[in-house]
Simulated assay, not measured.
Amino acid sequence: MTFSASARRALHAVLTTGSYAAAARHAGVSQPAIAQQIKALERHCGTPLFERRDGHLVPTAFCEELTGITEGIDVLEAQAARLLERRQSIQSGHLRIGLGNSMPGMALIAAFQREYPAVTLSVVLSDFANIIRGVVEGELDVGVLPNVPQDRRFVRESLIDQDVVAIVHPDDPISRFDRIDCEQLMQSPLIFRSRGSSTQAMVDAAFRQAGLEPRARLVLDTRDGVCEAVANRLGVGFMWRHGTGRTDTIHRIAVTGMGAPCPESVFRLSETQDPIVRAFFVTAKNFRRHAEVLKAG
């Protein structure tokens, strides 16, 4: 005998009401049907599930243990039903996403589109300050940034861990190093980001910690601009390690004193109830899980 949903409903109805008659009314079935389900369960279990006391059916210790488990099954079934309903309901819609880096955000977006191809996506690439402002002011549904601030207004889901690295052209003499410090970097022309960049905030902090005051050859508004400047051999730039999938003319070098790795996360306002946004967060959770499996492998 399988422990069917109807058998679980009959068991819970008797447990709740204390009689077959009341359980039948509660479940919307006949009294003989309830009694038959309980008797069949008792035969299958090989032990009574209820004892009659003062005209009421009282659960045995085994019954209480059993229903504690079956209630968990019912909760999981309800969650599965809500998940299926949500997936079926997302046949269209619009999601506005703000990215501080092309990656891993673009990979996450690709994973979401494979699951929900009918949803229209608008993507804004901007700096840290603008993405935070866009989410707070409702111009963006979700943002993807490293080092999202601890703020009770936000719900976050971590994707990967990031650290800031120096980037150079492969022909640059310092490309032979696996690690470099700020004092060594002072010997090269530097390419910085403009104010509002989380990358530049980390770079500024590292040079201050080293007691240095660098001057930039170039200050650029975008990460892509920094990458292009480096590709054209204009100097040494900085970026989050996994901020782009580009490898052709960009060589990454770890920088001593640049700070500990921090998570890059997708985040939204905590009060958001939009099912599309919530589905995006489920995709993000699966993205992180997949990344951890690949890393472990």
Rank of each mutant, 00 (worst) to 15 (best):
P189I: 04
V14G: 02
D274Y: 09
G68V: 06
R114V: 04
L234A: 13
A35S: 11
P149I: 08
I132M: 13
T272P: 03
L57G: 08
N130T: 13
P146M: 10
A205T: 07
Y20M: 03
V293E: 15
A13I: 02
L234H: 13
E77N: 09
V266K: 12
A33D: 08
L49R: 09
D204R: 10
M103I: 00
A33T: 15
G257H: 03
M202H: 09
M186I: 02
D54Q: 14
T244R: 02
I191L: 09
A61Y: 02
H169W: 03
L108W: 08
V136P: 05
I167A: 02
I90N: 10
T199A: 01
A78V: 07
A284Y: 09
R233Y: 02
N101D: 11
H26V: 04
I132C: 12
Q209P: 00
R43K: 14
Q113W: 03
P32Y: 01
V155Q: 09
A40W: 03
A24G: 04
Y116A: 05
K295A: 15
A111F: 09
Q162G: 00
R153N: 14
V293R: 13
I180M: 01
P48E: 12
S158V: 05
F3C: 03
V136D: 14
E157A: 12
T247F: 00
V155W: 08
Q200W: 07
V236N: 01
R82H: 08
S30H: 12
I253G: 00
D274N: 15
I73H: 13
A10K: 02
E264Q: 14
